[in-house]
């Protein structure tokens, strides 16, 4: 396919305001796209979209219940046998945690068998000079120093950083620390203990694991804020579908930019 940028300055080309260069869709999801007219490309397959929305539910549940585990609700009155408030909160937390963990597993599997867009978030191509220069471009675009956005089939470099460093890696951290703490209650003969208990030993004292698990929650909370804001903003500002793509999978390039 006609990816015809010269090797040095993809950024300028991508932002090419005159549209002198030939229109094309990039062969590579991570390369900028120039589109003169409405075009759409099927980017995110159904399992990715489903995973995304299941994740939304799981993460919201996990954050609310997790917050309440650290800072419990006002005390219930009456007999202990009549109440199970913390019990249900923890139950919801663990259930959502399982959904979240299984979701990540499925996501890894789909990263292996899905289309090329399914693999993008697993690592950051920090050694690629083109990628880093386009990351810098994206930062300039976000700070109003560039007039035109670069558009991508997959995640733009800045979004890519957010997905990987602020969501995926923290998510893996949350699963590891979460199951490690869960294993303490599940007991020494549980599979959770066999697989995850070593995580406790990184700190030596479980209370530190609780602390960093909570820090992880706040990291993901910050990600959610940035993610939702950026999706809405880019959907409006950069002439491509960013929200819709998570519903129908089609990346729509609205017009020449």
């Amino acid at each position: 396919m006609g990816y015809i940028f010269d090797s040095t300055s993809a950024v300028d080309q991508g932002a090419d305001p005159d549209g002198k260069k030939e229109n094309f869709y990039a062969d590579d999801y991570a390369k900028p796209v120039v589109a003169d007219e409405y075009r759409s490309v099927y980017v995110y397959e159904a399992p990715i979209r489903l995973w995304h929305w299941v994740n939304v539910c799981a993460v919201i549940t996990l954050m609310i219940t997790g917050y309440l585990i650290g800072v419990p609700l006002p005390s219930a009155n009456g007999e202990a046998s009549e109440w199970f408030v913390m019990g249900y909160i923890r139950y919801a937390h663990f259930a959502a945690g399982y959904v979240f963990a299984v979701g990540i597993l499925v996501r890894f599997w789909w990263g292996a068998v899905g289309n090329r867009f399914a693999r993008q978030v697993f690592y950051l191509p920090i050694w690629s000079r083109r990628w880093t220069s386009e990351l810098a471009y994206q930062l300039r675009w976000q700070t109003f120093l560039e007039r035109k956005p670069l558009r991508y089939l997959g995640h733009n470099p800045l979004a890519h950083v957010a997905m990987t460093a602020l969501f995926l890696y923290p998510a893996l951290f949350m699963i590891a620390t979460g199951f490690a703490m869960y294993s303490e209650a599940a007991g020494r003969d549980s599979w959770q203990h066999a697989i995850f208990y070593w995580v406790i030993d990184i700190w030596g004292n479980t209370i530190d694991v609780h602390l960093w698990h909570r820090m992880g929650m706040w990291t993901i909370a910050c990600f959610v804020i940035v993610h939702v804001y950026a999706a809405v903003r880019e959907d409006i500002m950069s002439g491509q579908s960013v929200i819709g793509v998570m519903f129908n999978g089609e990346r729509l390039f609205k017009r020449k930019f």
Partner: peptide, 11 residues
């Protein structure tokens, strides 16, 4: 422990 699960705490 029963009070923990019930959500009954010393405030």
């Amino acid at each position: 422990r029963a009070h923990f699960d019930a959500g009954q705490y010393v405030e």
